[in-house]
């Protein structure tokens, strides 16, 4: 049996006495687009923070491509090929778009903490950053300080940084939050494009986007996965309807 891209085993997290994640079991297959949905406060962001090492877990295990990454520091996890975007734009505001993208690929291309290479003279850096900026439509903005970009360009940069690290497992946190209809369409097209040789996990509130993109959907309610399956199955599931629309509707 080949290992899953990402596997959560009986994952739990408490903040003080409140248990936010209550025994999550989740297996994400390689090369899939897997959406995690759930009402506000279900624990979706906490789940991401546990997977990426931002918070220590209370109990349970997290496996990335079969290897245990539970409670490793975020940079260790990133080096093993897991990358995430943030719901609230999290970029390097005083650096240019090109610098932002380039910073994200330095480790993966083996530059580590080098102080004897010039970033402007390396062909591998130039090629990959060109490709990433092209893919995310940021080419014409390359020299603009990231803090001055428009909101939708900053969202695109958020994804560009996430991609640039060369990770094959990518966690997107509400990639279309706050976008207009047409911007959302562009973002969906971009996500579909980048999903081709990668595993994608998406947390998203826009159900149109979720049912459009996802091959598998898991529903998180009060820190537990109540249902997992292909979109059609989830759409028909009573537990899901209950969680979203209240018991009367079900």
């Amino acid at each position: 049996m080949t290992a899953h891209a990402l596997e959560l085993r009986n994952l739990r997290k408490s903040f003080g006495k409140t248990e936010i994640i209550r025994g999550v079991e989740l297996a994400i297959e390689k090369g899939r687009i897997h959406a995690v949905i759930g009402p506000n406060g279900a624990g979706k962001s906490t789940l991401y923070n546990l997977i990426t090492g931002l918070h220590p877990v209370t109990s349970g295990r997290i496996l990335l491509k079969g290897a245990d990454i539970t409670d490793k520091p975020p940079y260790e996890i990133a080096r093993r090929g897991l990358s995430r975007s943030f719901q609230v734009t999290n970029i390097f505001p005083r650096m240019s778009v090109l610098e932002n993208v380039r910073c994200a690929m330095l480790w993966d291309l083996g530059y580590r903490y080098s102080f004897w290479h010039f970033v402007g003279r390396r062909r591998d850096l130039a090629e990959r950053s060109e490709a990433i900026m092209e893919q995310t439509g940021l080419g014409s903005r390359r020299n603009v300080p990231a803090g001055l970009l428009s909101y939708s360009d900053q969202r695109a940069l958020e994804i560009a940084i996430t991609l640039a690290s060369g990770a094959d497992v990518i966690l997107l946190d509400e990639p279309t939050a706050g976008m207009s209809r047409s911007e959302t369409e562009q973002a969906v097209a971009l996500i579909r494009k980048i999903s081709q040789d990668r595993t994608l996990v998406i947390v998203e509130h826009d159900m149109g986007v979720v049912f459009d993109l996802a091959e598998t959907i898991s529903v998180l309610v009060y820190g537990q996965i109540v249902a997992s399956g292909p979109p059609a199955e989830i759409r028909a599931n009573t537990a899901v309807r209950e969680a979203y629309l209240g018991p009367e509707a079900a």
Binding site: A78, N90, F92, C103, L106, Y113, W116, F118, A164
Partner: peptide
């Protein structure tokens, strides 16, 4: 102009994100 120099700017701008790029 080296990787170290650029990451130094990055740690100034956003130490949180820096960890997620390795």
């Amino acid at each position: 102009h080296t990787p170290f120099g650029r990451m130094s700017n990055a740690v100034r701008d956003n130490p949180e994100r820096l960890q997620f790029v390795g």
